[in-house]
Write a protein that binds this DNA or RNA. Sequence first.
DNA 1: CTGAAAGCGCTTACAG
DNA 2: CTGAAAGCGCTTACAG
Lengths: 338, 338
Amino acid sequence: MVTIKQIADLCGVSRGTVDRVINERGNVKTETRDLVLNVIKKLEYRPNPAGKALSARKNNPVVGILIPAEGNPFFDDVIRGIKTAAEKYEIYGLNILFHTTRGYNIRAQLQILDELKNKINALIISPINDPLIINKINEFVDEGIFVVTLNNDADESHRHCYVGSNYVNGGETAGALLQMIAPPKANIGIIMGSSKILGHRQRLKGFEYSINKNNDFRIIDIQENDDDDICSYDKTREMIIRYPEINALFIVAAGVYGACRAVLSLNRQDNLTILAFDTVPTTIEMMKNHVIKAVIYQHPYRQGQRAMQIIFEYLVNGIDPDKTKHIMKNEIKILENL
Amino acid sequence: MVTIKQIADLCGVSRGTVDRVINERGNVKTETRDLVLNVIKKLEYRPNPAGKALSARKNNPVVGILIPAEGNPFFDDVIRGIKTAAEKYEIYGLNILFHTTRGYNIRAQLQILDELKNKINALIISPINDPLIINKINEFVDEGIFVVTLNNDADESHRHCYVGSNYVNGGETAGALLQMIAPPKANIGIIMGSSKILGHRQRLKGFEYSINKNNDFRIIDIQENDDDDICSYDKTREMIIRYPEINALFIVAAGVYGACRAVLSLNRQDNLTILAFDTVPTTIEMMKNHVIKAVIYQHPYRQGQRAMQIIFEYLVNGIDPDKTKHIMKNEIKILENL
DNA sequence: CTGAAAGCGCTTACAG
DNA sequence: CTGAAAGCGCTTACAG
């Protein structure tokens, strides 16, 4: 374990100077800088995060969090992950400012972002993919705020990291699974949230890619429910009544409960194979009732936890993230391994 | 953020005394002890792990690791998890002594444990469930060594933590999944490792529990392959030849490759539904060849990582683990979500 | 451009 | 039974 003190002694300079070199604070003669850098390299110096964390106590770093969680139980586990991690890191002096919005409202996101701007050192956001939001994220980055996108990426922006799932792969996995668990010849109805939402389009794309490889599987109809359970109920009912040959249902996003209730209202639960995403309580209920066969799961708790961890390591331990995309695997959950 | 200094000032004692109370080092008058404890409680004092980590640098803590990994590729990912974490923690002064054995050899485990005993502060072990090993673990615990069992528990011992999966649930999940992906009426052949190994027995139990709920599914035969691919090949061939009605194969532990090769040698891959555990390279190969339909996955990388993390937090940050059993979920993997 | 000193929160001898 | 001091590895004013 090499320390700054050792580097300083070996180079015949003070620890302050070594610190200036390591952290690129300037005000160092080129020659001494080169000397220090060489010794650092030769001794494979790595800073001790505990030392960093201790002196970072004076910074009182703050993380702003902005998530469209209201009315969307999917985010409950994400938030649990964030808050559990935040509690763990509180003792290091890391604090959070927690905000939620209802649905994907650009104006609401912008307003909260403006409020947060001069109060935070890092931001966790599940952004809307809109130029106004992208610009705002870039503003934050330009001011030295560390930005992590969570569950939904904004890769056109200059955000530092994304934590979330691979949506195309989620759809593809769902498609392949459905071919295993549905009857040999299946007519599929699809209920999606909104084609305006990137993740939903990507899941659909992956699903279609997978299904189209199989001549015995056909997609009969696709309807949008705007992530609303009542709308989902109506649209699903209409779809199943109109196309009674449908024997498999793929629910791309929210509105799972409404869709299942529609199936139940038509008493079709025993001859319809239903596949959905995420393990919100109403979905688990429908799995227990054997209405939903399986779901694709994207580790929501770990998503929240990981986002906080990345920021903690950056702000407190002074460690840069090792990659920009932190992708949680899509898992298959049935009742038994929930 | 309350610090020891603040507690000391408020109580009118020195920081040394507060430290003595917090860490129960004795040599404190009962009255001062009570006073300090009260203030600590009132102010909700939590020690700052960074401070602890820094002063722990002088301890040079060492973790012994003992895993029956030789010739068992399952452990490759577990070890990757351990080593990646160990590298991350090295800078804090935490070092490891890494040992493996071939198979479950009691004598070999005991010998390495004796070698390690006076060199380590913590132990990660995937123990054999034998009284000799249990006793040895208890010896370690009695000497103040922090013991974590990994992937296989020894809950009759005094080990501090277990990190691993729930084997009964793994079998149950496999059974439920098989009922979804096998033909409506299935005759099942089972290839297990050894009934001497607890985890294998537990998986079998969970599987049988799940299968026995279904009158259309029957278990035709159970053979043991001793986790050996050649043996697995022979036993599987014999089984399938003897019971040609078998149309589903459940492989409980290792020897997956041998079993699959047996199926291929009899050209039965297209009318046999094969289910196995874990994603070792040869298993993935057989999934790509569409010989294996699905596997149950137990997060091996995270198991290794978590074991190291628990020990790091204990030894370096001075944080006791929040629970004794750290169970990784059983996940279902198909080719698409590997 | 550089160094000496103090401080972050904890623990550890040492002295009494 | 208790306190003062030094140290773990880093950063931050401050002085020159």
